[in-house]
Write a protein that binds this DNA or RNA. Sequence first.
DNA 1: GCCAACGTTGGC
DNA 2: GCCAACGTTGGC
Length: 155
Amino acid sequence: MNHAQYWLMKSEPSVFSIEDLKNASKQTAPWDGVRNYQARNFMRQMQIGDLVLFYHSNCDVPGVVGIAQVSRLAYPDYTAWDPLSHYYDPKSTSDNPRWDMVDVQFVTKFEKTLSLKSLYHYPELQDLPLIRKGNRLSVMPVTASQWHFMISLCK
DNA sequence: GCCAACGTTGGC
DNA sequence: GCCAACGTTGGC
């Protein structure tokens, strides 16, 4: 793997959890439903093999729960075309798709959740968008040093 | 369930 | 292009 990039992606576990990814066919699933341009643009920058911190939001203990890797480059999010989908967006058409997604594959689940609350304590992570006040970005880049620091916290 | 922060929409 | 209104996110 050459020059993998690092990312963090949020999901509500009641909708799609790391367990769901682990149990999915080929332990792989499309990261659908992103409806934010900045987040979409980050997904367009992803490469096969990029590593992803899987984050659980809107739950008892919000935090990083494991690792996934990008297994397919960005392609149109077809849930935007499905009128019955929660993610339906009539402004996205197959001729001119507005939203993209990537596929991610399960890598590992941490024994303990790396809680958001604990992450606030570390100056090493002060520039991580996740812990900036009011940040709601659901897909964000993580620097190599931030990545290695967070991984070291899991040991 | 509350609500602060933020993004998007659309009238003008 | 401004900006008020509105909808969503997501921690608490």
